[in-house]
């Protein structure tokens, strides 16, 4: 009986050690991506990740002499997984906010496309006040754990807020009308428009000028304590920003220069 017990523990140990080999090494940079957030990072049918951040990561890896390995992670657990060492950095369209800075460090921002509301049926608002009025009594979809979710929860009092685990699930419901509008990074709506021309952006593009909750741009998340990695990444980003390659990359994926100086 005890023998069977030990045997099973050994089998479990072996199976987990096989998984264990993915620990941090100096040649590989493990990048955590959401893989459901076009055009920042999405997945194609062969299972590969593609997107702005994927290309950016590959360029960065080349410059710091490491091989990039992309690890998909649901948005909800993207920070805890970094803290659990599932990967070394987060590049998942994660906005730099004060709240998040308490848990992890960020590099300087590399892009910012602002936050907006996309909808099939809502009329366009030109200011935040108009937006608030138009959203009364409507159903707004947000993604859990995003700055939009936090802002919506804080500011919208007469709107039904539905929090989805992934942006795609939000899109599914937006397209079939079960929610009237969705709020997230502007690039999400522009990407959605490519397949569905009826989607319109019905709000002004919101940034930290409208509410500090909207953060200071998208950056790379790094675990606290890894100062060397952080400075390496910052150096590369500064280089790319100076020589224009960051702007070119952003224009390629977003249609305009969404990069940060």
């Amino acid at each position: 009986m005890k023998k069977i017990g030990f045997l099973t523990i050994i089998i479990i140990a072996i199976l987990t050690i096989i998984q264990f080999n993915k620990k941090s090494s100096d040649e590989v940079l493990r990048v955590g991506v959401e893989g459901a957030y076009i055009p920042w990072g999405g997945i194609d049918p062969s299972g590969n990740v593609i997107g702005f951040e994927v290309e950016l990561a590959n360029i960065i890896c080349e410059k710091i002499n490491r091989k990039c390995k992309f690890i998909k992670q649901d948005w909800d657990g993207i920070i805890p997984a970094l803290l659990n060492n599932k990967y070394d950095v987060i590049m998942a369209g994660i906005t730099i906010t004060e709240e998040r800075k308490k848990k992890i460090n960020f590099t300087r921002g590399y892009a910012d496309t602002g936050v907006a509301v996309g909808s099939l049926s809502l009329e366009k608002s030109n200011s935040v006040e108009e937006l608030l009025k138009k959203l009364e009594g409507k159903k707004l979809g947000v993604q859990t754990g995003t700055i939009s979710a936090k802002w919506a929860d804080k500011t919208l009092k007469n709107t039904i807020i539905r929090s989805y685990g992934t942006q795609e699930e939000l899109n599914i419901d937006l397209l079939n009308g079960r929610i009237d509008a969705g709020m997230n990074d502007t690039s999400v709506w522009t990407a959605l428009q490519k397949g569905n021309e009826d989607i319109k952006i019905v709000s002004p593009i919101l940034t930290s000028k409208d509410d500090p909750l909207f953060g200071e741009g998208i950056g790379i998340g790094v675990k606290k304590g890894r100062t060397e990695l952080l400075s390496e990444l910052n150096r590369v980003l500064d280089e790319m920003s100076a020589d224009g390659s960051l702007s070119d990359l952003a224009t390629k994926w977003f249609g305009y220069d969404a990069s940060l100086r």
Binding site: D76, I79, P80, E99, K102, K103, T144, G145, A149, K150, D153, S163
Partner: peptide, 10 residues
């Protein structure tokens, strides 16, 4: 979950 994702207090 909503509160957790905003405050990170697990």
């Amino acid at each position: 979950n909503k509160i957790r994702s905003e405050t990170y207090a697990v």
